[in-house]
Each structure stands twice: as structure tokens, then as C-alpha cells.
Write a protein that binds this DNA or RNA. Structure first.
Lengths: 142, 142
DNA sequence: TCCACAACCTGAAGCTACTATAGAGTCAAG
DNA sequence: CTTGACTCTATAGTAGCTTCAGGTTGTGGA
């Protein structure tokens, strides 16, 4: 199977496949006489795994770790659960951050209910007066 | 005031200040004899505004738009409200996406309750079996 | 006056996860 | 034998910075 077909079955672009190879997420393919990449079922499986992890918003670092662990089938899967739990924690943390953010934005929004002159706009004044202590820093890649 | 002091009062790094100047968010400073940037109160105000917008997770594009609008104090502030409402909508949308994601992750997590061999791990099998239709695409910069 | 050292300067590269482009080569059908 | 789809490599761009290299300026103590 050539790269276009692989990309099609995994629903990603050809460029993404080549990028994963360069990043070491996908092992280098064998080459045909004309230097075209040749793939088999194991590449399909691996690429689909990677794309599914990306659909779950995992970083390449997290995916790399999962792939390493999956490559030792006899080992205990506790480490897998750990990676996964940490990822869930990242997501939960980001949701908390964004909910704080939404509350702050909604509060600010109420400072300008009517349309008026810009220099009297409650939103702009609200932003100018903010103390940075209000909001959290970002802790995740999400 | 020199760049280090400006950065300190706005609680960001010197590099960030120079970056904002290069991006055109912050107007170019006048220079001292030794080519050091010199800032005044208006720069402090503007930089604090920018940093507060960033704390609200606005993109540089959104901030640029707000700054433009703020530079025409006599105009109607309806456009400001519009930018703001759209940003709130972005945040709400991202929260929805992440909550879907969390649900999917939590569901997957339940497929491996006990520690066992990697090749029997319900999480890894679950990821491998996923259909990409499950999850939404990202629509915002958040 | 000299020296050390902090703070400043510019320009370029690195980060994440891709996407897009240019220019060239390969292959199957008509 | 030509057309056109597909592939190849290498490079640059995206957002919002951070880090680094290599050089200049300003300030305080000896």
C-alpha cells in the first residue's frame, strides 16, 4: 500500500503521515524501486492508533510513551493507566481554567449593556482595571 | 522608564515586550543616546491592557482589534461588545468540546480497572477500536 | 581610572503539530 | 509517447512566545 491509501484509511493527509515518520511516531517504511514508501497492515494499525490518540487530544509525548509501552506486551499495564489518568487530569484542569475564564468574561460583559461611546465602554475600562491575580496560568497543552 | 522596569510593572518578560513591539501591538519606543528603549505612562497602560487581554486568553488578532477600536474614543462601542461576545462564545465552545472529550476518556478508562498485561489492557484496545466519528474538531484558538 | 557585572541590544532558532509550497521524479492509462 | 495523478525532498509558515549567541551600554566599587 502506498502513502495515499494509508492516509485515506487513517483519515489524515499524506503530509501528516510523512511528518509522523520524521518525528519517529511511525516507523520508516520500506521503499519501492521508485523510492515510494510501502506500507502494510501493521502501519495501518499504528497510524490509526496515533490518530485516535490525537482525537483524544493527547500530545505527541504522551502518544510516544503509550506506543513504547504497547511495544512491551508482557509488561504490566499500570504505566498505561498512569499516562491515561494524567491526561484525564489535564483535561479536567483545563475545563476548570476555562470555566473560571468564562465567569470572568461574563462578569466583564455585564459592565457594558448599552451601546455607547468607546471611551465610556465598561468592558474596556474593566480590562484596563483588571488585576492579574484574578486568573490562573495555563498548565496543559490543551 | 527602561524596558526592564516596564516588564516588571506589567508582570511579563523583557522579551515579551520586544516581541509585542515587533508585532505592532505596542508602539515603538523612543530611544536613549545608548539606543535603549524609553517608555512612559501610556506604554504602561497599553501593555497592561494587552497582558490583561492575554490573561483572558484573547488572540493577538482580537487584541489588535480592541486596541484599534479603543484608539477611536468617540466611536460607538458596539464593535467592542461584538469582539467580546464572540470571544465568550469561543470559550463556551471549547468548554463543550473538552467536556465531550472528558466523557470519552472516562468511558475508555473504565475498560481497564485492574493492573494486567499490556496486551490485554482495555484502554489500549479501546483506543485501537475507536471510530473517529466520536469526537468533534477544534474550532477555536483556545 | 579601571573593572566587573547587570541590563540592554539585534537576530536567529526552538517549541507543538501540522499545513502549504516549490520543483522534480515515478507510474499507469490512453 | 504523452498526460495526469501520485509520489519524493526540502523549506517556510502558523501562534505566542522563550531561549540563545554575541555584542554594547551604564553603574558601582576599588
Amino acid at each position: 500500500m502506498k502513502i495515499g491509501e494509508l492516509a485515506a484509511v487513517a483519515r489524515c493527509t499524506v503530509e501528516t503521515v510523512r511528518y509522523y515518520e520524521k518525528e519517529g511516531l511511525l516507523p520508516a517504511a520500506t521503499r519501492s524501486g521508485g523510492n515510494f514508501r510501502q506500507y502494510g497492515a501493521e502501519h495501518v494499525e499504528r497510524l490509526r492508533f496515533i490518530r485516535n490518540c490525537r482525537a483524544l487530544d493527547m500530545s505527541h509525548g504522551e502518544i510516544r510513551r503509550l506506543l513504547e509501552l504497547a511495544d512491551h506486551p508482557q509488561d504490566d499495564c499500570g504505566a498505561v493507566n498512569e499516562v491515561f489518568d494524567q491526561h484525564i487530569a489535564h483535561v479536567a484542569e483545563r475545563i476548570r481554567e476555562l470555566e473560571q475564564l468564562r465567569a470572568a468574561l461574563t462578569h466583564l460583559r455585564q459592565r457594558c449593556c448599552d451601546t455607547q461611546a468607546v471611551d465610556a465602554c465598561g468592558i474596556l475600562h474593566g480590562i484596563a482595571e483588571m488585576e492579574n491575580a484574578t486568573l490562573p496560568e495555563r498548565h496543559t497543552h490543551l
